[in-house]
Every structure is written in C-alpha cells, then in structure tokens.
Amino acid sequence: MRIFDPHIHMTSRTTDDYQAMHAAGVRALVEPAFWLGQPRTAPESFLDYFDSLLGWEPFRAAQYGIAHHCTLALNPKEANDPRCTPVLEELPRYLVKDGVVAVGEIGYDSMTPAEDTALAAQLDLAAGHSLPALVHTPHRDKLAGLRRTLDVVAESRLPVDRVLVDHLNETTVKEARESGCWLGFSVYPDTKMDEHRMVAVLREYGPERVLVNSAADWGNSDPLTTRKVGEAMLAAGFSEDDVDRVLWRNPVAFFGLSGRLALDPAMPEALHEGNSILRGGE
C-alpha cells in the first residue's frame, strides 16, 4: 500500500514517526503551514517557520525515504492578529519556491472580517502563482463556515477545481462535493473523522476527488491513520485500486496541479501511467 499523506504537521512530530510512517507505506506527504499552538508575534517568526518547511523538514523526511512538500500561508486564526498580517506581503517571495505545492492552510476560524480579507487575498495569490489552494474548514460552526468559504472561492479568480476543502465530515461533504472542489477528510482521534466513518462516507459518495489525511500535529493525533483507512477500506470490500486512488493518485493529481510535485522516480509507480505530471509535466 503506497500512501501520500496530504496534510500532516511534521514540525510537531518526532523522527520515530517518520520511521513508522515509512514502515506503514507513506512515501510522500504535504505539510501545510498552520498555527503552532503558541501564538506568533511577528512576521519573522513565520519566515523562520517557512524556512523550516522548505529546508529542515524535507531533509528530515528524505532520511526516511519520504518526499516532503509544503503549502504556505497566513493561517485563519493568526489572520486576526495585526502583528502577524504583514506576512502576507512576504508570501510572494516564498510562493515561487520549489517544494511549495499550494497556498494553505487558508480559510476560516471564527469567521471574522479579518479572516474574510486574508482568505480572499490568499486565494488571489494562489491564482497569481498558478498554485492550487488548501482550505481549512472551521472546527466550530462548520457548515456555515463551509458555505461562506465556497462563496468566497466562487468570487475569487481561482477555479473551484483547484481548491481542496479540508476537514470535511458527514455534515459538510454533500455541499462541498456539489461545489466541484476537492474533498479532504482528516482522520484524527476525538475531534475529526475515524476510519469507519470515513469508509461509510466513501461508500455513499465514492472515491472521486477524495483525499484522506492524518492531520497529525501537536495534539492527540496519529500519523498512521491514513494506513488505517486503507485497511478499513479493504476490509469493507473496496478494491486495492480504490485504496490506491484515495491514498495516492488523488493527492498526486491535486498537488500535481502546481507543476511542482517532485516524487522520486524510484518510488513505486511514481510515474503514473507514464505521465510525468510529478515533475511539472516535463
């Protein structure tokens, strides 16, 4: 089982996790820029974090045979802090870099005017840099947050089929799917989805445009939930091809929209159907 975890915060994980992830089949991941638990107080703090996502973490991942890419953004929560918002002016220097495969995580936390502004501005940055966008949906008031998110996406110049809306669940999947965006599900203990609910959603809606991630971070989380979903899918009668589609081909297709996904050609079937989308279509 080859696994691409499209959303995991490795900054918060130990090297043991990289080993365990590789043993479970994880060969590629995307680390979205997000809140660190501890609030930041200056744009420079973001820049150090971005540098880490572009230097230190890819090195750490490579030691364990895992290709590391990232998404960069001002996250929704800190978009409300005027000490942090100047980082928006620095983002263009970072969004051009190899290894950046989307703008994200953007979206809503408490649905404030400051979050509206940051979301719209960063959807525009994504369009301007030919990057897709990874959009977080809020933990509180999620359905209203999803609707407002989809409205802002529709008003932006970024096509909805270049948007991955994440942290979906049973209450939000239908409307998200109808919008035409890509569908992200975080399988995360206690607060988000679990593997059995995920299988039920896949049964009802099918694997098209569906991405499953662990969203593992500094909370009570598990970097191997992607594998657990794959096993639960097989146990429920899904084919190995369905599992591969959800856990590998769908994330490769979505982040491949950036033209910057660089997967080691030695990886199993990294060049899907002879298509070199992984190296920017060259």
């Binding site: 540098d51 572009l54 230097g55 230190w56 090195f59 970072y94 870099k97 190899d98 290894g99």
Partner: peptide
C-alpha cells in the same frame, strides 16, 4: 541564503 530552501542555501 537566510531565506532560502535547502537547495538554495
């Protein structure tokens, strides 16, 4: 150098 990726540095 300071604001570079690993490759850029």
């Amino acid at each position: 150098y300071a604001r570079g990726t690993g490759d850029e540095r």
